[in-house]
Amino acid sequence: MTDSSLKKVLITGAGSGFGFEAAMRLAQKGFDVIAAVEIYAQVQTLKWQAAERKVQLRVEKLDVTNEGDRHKALDWGVEILVNNAASEREVRRSMSPAPTSGTSSRSTSRDRCSSPRASPSR
């Protein structure tokens, strides 16, 4: 194992899911983890969950869409960033329906996967 105690890791979106589990597991391995959450209520919850798992990590309130919060994080001495937070705009965009035919120049997965030779001739 490498000397991970020298690595300061900031994980955004650490209140649940992948970010939560990444924060816990990296802290267990000796990384100096800053687990960032968007909502103040998540700060205490995450601290409690870390204590339950006997994991030491630092929990910070960080809204990645807030310029002041981002500037505050610049002073944390982060060496590794796991940018796991999704902004509301990103979530809405990912859940919106795909553009209809003729409205986008982006190719579909069918366009990328098929070749002219593989298509049946009609």
Results as ranks from 00 to 15, higher is better:
Trp48Met: 12
Ile11Val: 15
Asp32Ala: 10
Asn84Ile: 06
Ile34Ser: 01
Asp69Tyr: 02
Thr2Val: 15
Phe20Cys: 01
Val78Trp: 05
Ser4Trp: 08
Glu21Trp: 04
Arg122Asn: 02
Lys54Asn: 11
Ser16Gln: 11
Gly17Trp: 09
Leu74Tyr: 05
Arg117Val: 02
Val37Leu: 00
Thr65Lys: 11
Thr108Arg: 04
Ser109Asp: 00
Met1Gln: 08
Ser107Lys: 12
Pro116Asp: 15
Asp111Val: 04
Ala73Phe: 09
Ser4Gln: 01
Ala14Asn: 03
Gly15Pro: 09
Val55Ala: 13
Gln42Lys: 13
Gly15Leu: 07
Leu62Lys: 05
Ser101Val: 15
Glu88Asn: 12
Phe18Lys: 05
Asn66Leu: 11
Ser101Asp: 14
Ala22Cys: 15
Gly13Cys: 05
Leu57Thr: 01
Asp3Phe: 05
Ser16Thr: 08
Lys61Ser: 02
Ser94Lys: 09
Lys8His: 12
Arg93Leu: 10
Arg92Val: 04
Leu81Met: 08
Ser114Val: 10
Cys113Trp: 11
Lys72Arg: 15
Val78Asn: 03
Asn84Phe: 10
Gln28Phe: 06
Gly68Gln: 12
Gly68Met: 08
Glu88Met: 14
Ala35Met: 02
Ala73Cys: 12
Gly13Ala: 07
Val43Tyr: 05
Ser87Trp: 03
Asp32Val: 02
Arg58Phe: 01
Phe18Met: 14
Glu90Cys: 07
Asn66His: 13
Val91Asn: 07
Glu88Ser: 10
Leu10Pro: 01
Ser114His: 11
Ala50Ser: 10
Arg89Thr: 14
Val37Asn: 01
Asp69His: 11
Ser5Leu: 05
Val91Pro: 04
Arg70Cys: 15
Lys29Ser: 12
Glu88Arg: 12
Asn83His: 14
Ile80Phe: 02
Asp32Ser: 12
Ile80Trp: 03
Val78Asp: 01
Thr45Trp: 12
Ile80Tyr: 03
Ile34Pro: 01
Trp48Gly: 03
Glu67Thr: 12
Gly13Val: 04
Lys54Ser: 08
Pro120Tyr: 09
Trp48Lys: 15
Ala51Met: 09
Val82Phe: 12
Asp75Thr: 11
Leu57Ala: 05
Thr45Pro: 03
Lys29Val: 06
Thr103Gly: 06
Arg92Met: 06
Asp111Ile: 01
Glu90Tyr: 12
Ala36Ser: 07
Glu90Trp: 08
Gln28Asp: 11
Ala23Gly: 11
Gly102Pro: 01
Ser115Asp: 04
Glu52Thr: 02
Val64Phe: 09
Val33His: 02
Ser16Arg: 13
Met95Phe: 09
